[in-house]
Simulated scan of single mutants.
Amino acid sequence: MIEIHDTAPDVHVQPAEYTRLLGYPAGWILGDRARELADSARNWYARHGHPWVYARQAGVLRTGDDTIVIDGVTFSSTRLRNTLHAAGAHSAFLVAVSAGPELEQEAQVRWREEKPDEYFFLEMYGSAVVEHLVMMTGARLCAWADTDDSAVLPHYSPGYSEWSIEEQPNLLELIGRTRRDAIPLELLDSGMLRPKKSLLAVFGLTRHTDRVARLSDLSPCENCSFVACQYRRSPYRRAQEVSDSLLPVVTAEAPGEAASLDRNRYKVSLKALQRWSEERLSIAARPDGGVDAVFRYEGTTCKNTGRPLQFHYHVSLGPRDEGYVIREQSCGPAPDDAGHTSMCRYITHPEQLMTSIDRERPLNGRPLDDVVRWRRPASP
């Protein structure tokens, strides 16, 4: 059983995440005054903040028809139950994180001093710290799970869609059952926590990594119906919609070429490919008859922490009469993307990962038709 008790976790909030929580759109550059306030909040917390993290693996996990039972405690969350059941989860991690009481106290001081801007920037930085702690805890659990041939599912918490905040007391009692001294939290009658910049969460654990790879609906944002939320990372999807990733694989055959392409199948549904070509692909013709294309990949950080990310694939092709030879290729994070920094490999070996991505240029110098017949080598 794994247990984590860290009273001095590293806190390096990504600027893009802090900017998002402040309510600015993606890619926004803070002005002079906003930058001053943001830096002041960050520097104050670096000097005075005392964040902490506690996590432990549960002993027993069972999923019923509408409930989850963790170490004998029953929770009623349809969303969490369905996620754990669909992924074939066999265990769970119980997590508590907090930015500590200092930031909340200082924010109240700024409010009483009639400094609402400073109050707001401190409050939002506290929220960013909590998100960062949850993300980093997930990454640590992910690293452990990889050694166990398992996958950690994205966290879920009381107060999220389809999990009542009224069950927060039960979760707090369960998490602290073995180490209550490690969780300096107070529970209010409303179910909220004090310090308020704190969070309790459950991360599912499964050995069915093949199932997790097909589950695209694990982000809490995608299942939260508060569409107007300014902090949303990904759009809300109706619960009854079927993910394109679950559509059957369809053979891609050009008319009159069924015999030659019979063994070549796309691994993604044609419906998804059609939509992506309309929404994510940009093509520009060059004067020499060649083509420049950019594909915007949108996904999440593999099978574990579930952070949204975007990568741009750039490809330059030669003219049609030369067979659209692949002349140049490159891949890298989108200019405003911060999600790639939450990838497990990036957290442990950032330079190695980015260098590997930059150097990968399969089929360079070969005609575009070869892509259909290409069999990508398996990763070691």
Rank of each mutant, 00 (worst) to 15 (best):
A26K: 08
I183L: 11
G191H: 06
I68V: 14
V268E: 10
L172W: 02
P248R: 09
E222Q: 10
R211C: 06
Y119S: 14
E3D: 08
S190F: 07
A284F: 02
P184K: 08
S190W: 06
A96S: 10
E241N: 13
T251C: 15
M124V: 06
V69R: 13
L215R: 01
L218E: 01
S260M: 15
L363P: 00
T341D: 07
L171Q: 06
P116V: 03
A46F: 04
G290W: 01
Q274S: 09
L199Y: 08
R375A: 11
S225R: 08
P184E: 07
C224P: 02
D149M: 06
R237A: 11
R296V: 13
V13Y: 00
L215D: 01
E102W: 02
P9W: 05
C221L: 05
Q168N: 04
M124C: 12
W276L: 12
E113F: 12
F75T: 03
E278N: 07
R263P: 07
A107P: 08
V291S: 09
Q240W: 14
L141V: 01
S216Q: 10
D337A: 05
D217N: 11
R361D: 02
A38M: 08
E36D: 07
E241V: 09
D10L: 15
S98G: 08
R296W: 09
V325C: 02
P154D: 05
L153E: 01
R35H: 09
V372G: 03
Y266H: 14
R177K: 14
R179L: 11
E162Y: 12
L185F: 07
V249N: 13
L218K: 02
L153Y: 03
P308C: 03
M135I: 14
Q310A: 15
P158R: 01
G290D: 00
N223G: 10
C302D: 14
S316T: 09
K271M: 09
E328L: 10
N170M: 13
P380F: 11
H48Y: 08
A338G: 09
G138C: 10
C142I: 07
